[in-house]
Structures are given as structure tokens and as C-alpha cells.
Design a protein around this nucleic acid. Structure first.
Lengths: 244, 244
DNA sequence: TTTGTATTATTTATACTACAAATATAACAT
DNA sequence: ATGTTATATTTGTAGTATAAATAATACAAA
């Protein structure tokens, strides 16, 4: 196995061993990039590739299997290997698992989610329609029987996902859908941190509910919405550092 | 091969065939989730897994090879398979390739990038230090010899990456770093759309340069910065729909 | 000519065997 | 207690074989 320097992003430089499969995978990805291949273009079949690279077909298959999983290629009997337009978040979806993530990772993911949700405000107000309002209204109504900001997770998810839908960006929706489970996990895990904060906010009349958010949307009041969504979400920033 | 319904996200329901490898991969991922395994926990070795599932070691290896690529597991001689904390964007990095993406995809990615950059404003102002200002100053100085907003791609990237660094969220930085190439690609590709807009803005004194952005940061003027970053970036929204 | 059917050849998907290389563990010696 | 050697286990790579799917071809019928 080939030894290579690995820059793991945090500044540390590690030694990692690249297997033949790793190398082949990298080589094919680079080949696709460098040759500017497009969806519909084809690659040589497995036997051919293996011969060309002088490796076992097993190794080629492992590498191609990875690319197939990522949605970069498609393999069909008798047709061989075709390049396709890959989805962005196949990998993210497979690795997203709160039990594997450190506290720090979880906080960063939540923060990213918040940044995205705040950052799409203008998109929302550029595109919002009466139907959006109506459907959000329905969701808010379903939630009316629950305590402020103590909605069932599915309803909470539905509300926010419906807002992302207004912005109309498929990747933002996909991303938020995937990482939502991390948010749920953190809410459960840090319940003892959140509860008192919510209580205090409510006592002061500063708690921002989904209904509040909905109303600012209905009134088409962009400034109020920005303030509201921040109030609604910033609460969850650095949850782990908040005192109980 | 197993036939399954696939909801491809856009509402269409397709038939897709799941290979044995796909099934094993899914099964292992679910097993890790359901058993709440944590980094450091181990899985049975390849031969054992294959026996347990009654399949060839090849198939097991292909599935594990995928998980290894995603950074979910690590395989070592004599130790077998260990669960590790995966990075989030391994997959994204591998599939990101402008030549594979449709125009629509490219526009959506750019929009997501913009949303993120706008959405981290408060994080930036919460955390910005003098050193951040100093280092940004250096970058802006390097850029001073170039035309407004016609910086070399690397310098442009360095400037924005340095801003993300202030926000201090590793995933936002990683994400933006990965998708930056899409932005560059679009800027080249839609140059004829961008040029006249920039020209007009400049004539009207409304062009927002990196220097302008920097100054709002230096002055710690949050409101001006928000307006500036939007002015700087919104230009690139729906590039394909703008008239030349 | 067009349409349908059977045949053939190609290619992926899966299974199985074999062995080299790495290395944790155990056994042993100092 | 420490260092060395031997052993056994496990991954990584190579190779062969076969089933299943299917594109391409040839052929037959309308």
C-alpha cells in the first residue's frame, strides 16, 4: 500500500496508506474531471479498465462500486459504464448519524443549518405565494394544540421544510432534510439546557413560536421575519456551552 | 437483483435495481444506526460478515469499501473493522465537477453558497478579531492592483475563505471550499452576462467590491455588511436567466 | 418494407480460491 | 520488566468461473 501525506483539514499532517482501490478511484475521478466527460459519456468496461491499469478486476470493481454508490456512474449489462449527473448529498445522507458525531460536530451542523435558514430569507420573500401561506397555515393549525415550540418532531420538521420549499432551492431542502435528525437529537440531548431558556423567554414574552414566524410571513414583513427566525433559532447555537 | 421503488426526490417514482452490494451496504449502515454504535466500536471481520449473511466475501468487501471511502469505517490488518467519526463532505467533494452538473444544478449550488455566506453574518460579527481584520487587509491589499471584482480566482477564494474562517464553522468552510470551483466555472461561463451588469453598477457607483466588504467589517458595521455582501453576491443568483 | 422472434455475444454481478503483507498476540529469552 | 521471535489472524490483491441481463444480429413472417 502506498504511503501518502494526508492533510486532514485541522492542520495536522498524518500518514495514511492508500490502497490500490483508493488510487484507482482517485484516478478515475480525475480522469472524468480532466477529460471533461459529461453525463452520457462512457468508460471502458471493467475488464478493459483492469487490463489497461494492469490490476485485478476485483480492484477495479471496488473502485467503480464506490463511484456507483456516489451516483457518478451507472453500470449496465452489455452497455458498460456510463457517466451520470450525480446527486450532491448521497454521501452526507449515508454518514449522518448522531451517535457517530462528536458534540462539536453536532453543534457545527446545527449552526450550519441555522445559517442556511437565515440566509434564505430574501429568497423566501422573493418567491412566496398565497398557496405557501395557506399550506403553512394548515401546519400551524395542526400545531396549535401543542405547547409553544413543543411540537412533535414530524410537525416541526414539516413546518421548516415547507419554508425551505418556498425558497425553491432543492439542495438547501435536501441538506436540511438530511441534517434535521441531528437537530432532533440535540434537542433531546440538551433538553435540560433548553427548557429553562424557553421558560424565561416565555415569561418575558420573547419566545418566538412557529405561529409568530408564520405571521411575519403572512404579513410579508421581511424585517420582522429575519428577527423572528433568528430569535427562533439562535437559541440552539452552542447549546453545549449554555448553562443549565 | 432486487427491484425496489425509488423516490428520486423530484416526485417521480422509478424502478431501480438494488444489487446485493447495495443491500449489504444499506444493511450495515442501518445496523450501525440501530445498534447506536460509536466510534471505536468494531464490526465482525469480512469473512465472518460474509458467512453471517451467506454471501461472497467479494460482495462484503465492495460494500465495506464504500463505507471505508465515506470515512464511516476503518479496516486494519488483524484488527478488523472499526467504526470512526466520518467527515461530512467526502462524497460531496468527490462528485463536485462542473462538467457533470446541469445549468439548474449549478445555479442552485451558487444560490446555496450565497445563502450560507449571508447567513453567517451574525457569527462573523460575534467573533471577529483584530487579527482577522489584519489578515483580510493583507488580502485586500494584494487585490488592489486588480480591477474591481476582477481578482484572480485564488485571491477571490482566499478572501471569502478568510471570511468563513471568522465565522469559525468548519463545515461551512469545507462546504464553501468544495463548491467554490462551481462558482468559478459559472463566472467564466456567464461572463457575457456578468460584465455588462458590473459595468452598469460601476457607472452608477453601486458596484460592491471586496474592499467595500472589508471596510464594513473593519468598521464593525453589521447592517452595512449585510447589505454589502448581498449586493456583492446576489448578482450571481439565477445568472442563466439574466439578459446579456 | 416492417414487425416480431430466436440466437449470439458481451458485460456486469456474484462466488470461490489462493496468497502476500501487515500486525496483534503469545511465547520466549534476557 | 523489557526486548525478541514465532504464530495466527485479517485485510489487500489476483485470478478463475458462472449466472443473469441485454444489445446486436440474423432470420422469419406479415
Amino acid at each position: 500500500m502506498k504511503k501518502v501525506h494526508m492533510n486532514s483539514g485541522n492542520g495536522k499532517i498524518q500518514f495514511a496508506t492508500k490502497t490500490l482501490v483508493d488510487q484507482v478511484e482517485e484516478r478515475i475521478i480525475n480522469y472524468i474531471r480532466d477529460s471533461k466527460l459529461k453525463p452520457g459519456d462512457t468508460l471502458p468496461n471493467e475488464t478493459q479498465l483492469s487490463q489497461d491499469m494492469g490490476i485485478s478486476r476485483n480492484v477495479t470493481r471496488e473502485a467503480m462500486s464506490r463511484l456507483r454508490m456516489l451516483g457518478l456512474i451507472q453500470s449496465r449489462t452489455k452497455r458498460g459504464i456510463t457517466i451520470v449527473e450525480p446527486p450532491l448529498f448521497v454521501g452526507l445522507e449515508k454518514v449522518t448519524n448522531p451517535y457517530l458525531f462528536s458534540e462539536e460536530t453536532i453543534m457545527s451542523i446545527i449552526e450550519m443549518r441555522i445559517a442556511l435558514e437565515v440566509g434564505i430569507t430574501d429568497f423566501i420573500f422573493d418567491k412566496i405565494t398565497d398557496q405557501d401561506i395557506n399550506e403553512l397555515d394548515k401546519i400551524v393549525n395542526q400545531g396549535s394544540i401543542y405547547d409553544d415550540n413543543n411540537w412533535p418532531v414530524d410537525l416541526e420538521k414539516a413546518f421548516h421544510m415547507r419554508i425551505y420549499q418556498i425558497a425553491g432551492n432543492p439542495f438547501i431542502s435536501q441538506f436540511q432534510k438530511i441534517v434535521h435528525i441531528i437537530f432532533e437529537y440535540a434537542k433531546n440531548n440538551y433538553d435540560s439546557h433548553i427548557k429553562p431558556i424557553n421558560k424565561k423567554l416565555k415569561a418575558e414574552g420573547k419566545l418566538i413560536t412557529h405561529l409568530d414566524l408564520f405571521n411575519t410571513l403572512k404579513e410579508k414583513d421581511r424585517k420582522k421575519y429575519v428577527a423572528a427566525i433568528k430569535g427562533h433559532l439562535y437559541l440552539y447555537r452552542d447549546l453545549n456551552k449554555k448553562s443549565k
